[in-house]
């Protein structure tokens, strides 16, 4: 999970249709910059936000039964 806010601009990240080393390359609709993940976040590899970072946002990867137990009021995208 990554922030999609940079320099006060909110980006809409969408798949570019390309993969690189079996990893999806994303682009943003606002500037058409290309984004590729590294351990710190999404790195701008082409375009207006070249060499800029959309940092990782703290999150948890878990199983549904554990999540719903801890957060019974959770919303979900399923």
């Amino acid at each position: 999970m990554y922030s999609r806010e940079i320099d006060g601009q909110t980006l809409t990240l969408v798949p570019s249709g390309w993969t690189y080393k079996h990893t999806f390359v994303l682009y943003d609709r606002e500037t058409s910059s290309l984004w590729y993940p590294n351990k710190n976040g999404l790195m701008g590899i082409q375009g207006k936000y070249f060499k800029r970072l959309l940092p990782v946002v703290d999150h948890e990867v878990t199983r549904w039964k554990k999540w719903i137990k801890k957060h019974p009021d959770t919303k979900v995208l399923k």
Partner: peptide, 20 residues
């Protein structure tokens, strides 16, 4: 949602959201 589904979960002060 099946119990063992993997989800990505995130919380802030007010609530929780999960994405399968």
């Amino acid at each position: 949602i099946s119990k063992n589904s993997h989800v990505i979960g995130v919380t802030d002060g007010s609530g929780a959201q999960a994405y399968t």
